[in-house]
Design a binder for these strands. Structure first.
Lengths: 354, 354
DNA sequence: CTGAAAGCGCTTACAG
DNA sequence: CTGAAAGCGCTTACAG
């Protein structure tokens, strides 16, 4: 393995100069820089990240924590974040909670982040008081995406979950539905997400605004998965007279519900309308009406808000940018809310005439 | 930040002993170990990975390279790999190619792996001769998953793609279909995958075994995505008399094809049967018949085969295991082939009587 | 079983 | 613009 002093020797300069030239620091003359780069290339030199990190005190790594990488929203966010991080010269350390509270604690409270990363991106990760204390003690910059509890001092990028569910529900009300069910997240879930709480609130608010009292028997809790949606809809049907429409808290649940309805001999949308939230890759294939949220854009924006103040390297030059305030007029804590929009497909229609 | 000498001072031992005790090396007396652990806990000490890596010469990190984290198969593999790696005390460095050849080269050929990881897991990543040279020069252990080209000296975990496609096609033949189309990957894709080549081979082999000559006009190339499947099926219909059945090279393509058929006024399976390969999360919701492949198991097995010889720490103890030969009777290059199995749902049926 | 000391390969004030 | 030297915080022979 070639080391920095091999390059220094070949280029006829000190290791300090090699270090500066390779990192694109401005205090190197063009001729020297050229010689150093040529020597490095000739020797096929790559800096040792461990040494560089130890000496420099920065890890060049960002931890990304997601509940389940296999779910559409999280995979899409991670893809966007990964792209931005690598373009900026950062490594991505992935933590997948897999729905397990034990893992959440391992990631958040122990030494898994300490001294290991320069910054943290938490995607829809439940945070208790003890976690906030631990994160504050870490004293790292970070961003949350789609998070219920914000972290003091960290920007937050998200959609308005209440509004998204309200839009979905209103769509059904506008079509003439009155008997509208809701399927959403599980309070018994190991991880205490807030997303489904907000979405339930939006569902209920829309009903009330239309003069309808929410009926608890039309509100079923399950998991945020295809299977969860299937089970929730099955349970709903087992409770008696079916609703004429269902608001699912996410597209995956909506898809599961559509299967359950079909299996029960009900047609979508003729017998029951179904609307989701997300605009999953497959929503089009299934003809699912939904409230679209910009997943990749949330990831991209969060990465940018995180890295801008860290002075990220750009792709082609390694010039260090001056520390700039976070993009946008307001650098403080109020979350950046990205817009959602109703996408009407074939899974929703007016209820049949009584 | 507390350092190792803070712990050493409090425990009344040398830093060498702290280092040994914390890593669970056997050469520490129980009493000493206890005092060190207590001191470390009291000071909330976490080792500095940078320093540890520089001094120890190991990074404790594994790079995982996937073509697209947003695709079902890759997300599922990554989830399984992540779990195994973290349980073994390794960090996961994620590289998502995003379908771009430029990124593939950046990841494989430059210094992105050099000195940065202890091992590499390549998932369905195309490898050219120059890449193999670069990987050999890296001199790192690794595993490939679902890979066309193997890396000399690296184990490979995969399914038999030819057999999977043959099974899918034979299922349609058994139902009585003769006019069977195939939609698969794009040779103009930036990344030159071999998966679709193998699957096409299986499709053609099954046809030939049934005495049918493959008809090029029934074989459409597109991308391994929902959209790609949609476009491929649309193209297929534009070419004239529709087939009575379609073999899609992956479930996502099959799902896109089902949409296109429906949009064209054709019913699945009454007018056209569709079978995929994968057993995607949503295959059940869509009633898609498919040839299931064990995605998570491929990830888990690959991670195990990689880490076993590295002497991974176990979850609860940090004891270093002795270096053991790779699990299984054969430690050499022949790929480990995991079984696939036909799952019949509602998207396939006998062709209508002529 | 334990410790003193060297060394891992860089970056960063500091001085010029 | 450049270099000599200290130091980042560990681990690892080596010696005992």
């Amino acid at each position: 393995m070639t080391r920095i002093d091999d390059v220094a020797r070949l280029a006829g300069v000190s290791t300090a100069t090699v270090s500066r030239a390779l990192r694109g620091l401005p205090t190197v003359s063009p001729g020297t820089r050229r010689r150093v780069l040529a020597a490095a290339e000739q020797l096929d030199y790559a800096v040792s990240p461990s040494a560089s990190r130890l000496a420099g005190g920065r890890t060049g790594t960002v931890a990304v924590v997601v509940p389940r990488i296999t779910r559409w929203f999280f995979a899409t966010v991670v893809e966007a974040v990964e792209d931005f991080l690598h373009q900026s010269g950062y490594d991505l350390l992935l933590h997948n909670l897999g729905g397990r509270e034990q893992i959440r604690q391992r990631v958040l409270r122990t030494a898994n982040l300490q001294k290991r990363v320069d910054a943290v991106i938490l995607v829809a990760t439940p945070l208790h008081a003890a976690d906030l204390t631990a994160l504050a003690a870490l004293d790292l910059p970070g961003v949350t995406i789609s998070s219920g509890t914000g972290v003091p001092g960290w920007p937050c990028v998200r959609i308005d979950d209440v509004a998204a569910a309200r839009t979905a529900t209103r769509h059904l009300l506008d079509l003439g539905h009155r008997r509208i069910a809701h399927i959403s997240g599980d309070p018994d879930d190991e991880l205490a997400y807030t997303t489904h709480v907000d979405r339930r609130r939006g569902y209920q608010a829309a009903l009330r605004a239309a003069g309808i009292r929410p009926d608890p028997s039309l509100d079923v809790e399950s998991q945020f998965t295809v299977d969860g949606g299937n089970r929730a809809a099955t349970e709903l049907l087992a409770r008696g007279e079916p609703p004429t429409a269902i608001v699912a808290a996410c597209d995956e649940m909506a898809m599961g519900a559509m299967t359950a309805l079909r299996d029960a001999g009900l047609r979508v949308p003729q017998d029951v309308s179904v609307v989701g939230i997300d605009d999953h890759d497959l929503a089009g294939a299934l003809g699912l009406s939904t409230v679209a949220q910009p997943a990749a854009e949330q990831g991209r924006l969060a990465a940018r808000m995180l890295l801008d103040p860290l002075g990220a390297r750009t792709l082609d030059s390694v010039a260090v940018r001056p520390r700039a305030p976070v993009a946008g007029p307001d650098t403080a804590n109020p979350p950046v809310i990205l817009p959602t929009r109703l996408v009407v497909r074939e899974s929703t229609a007016p209820p049949r005439a009584h």
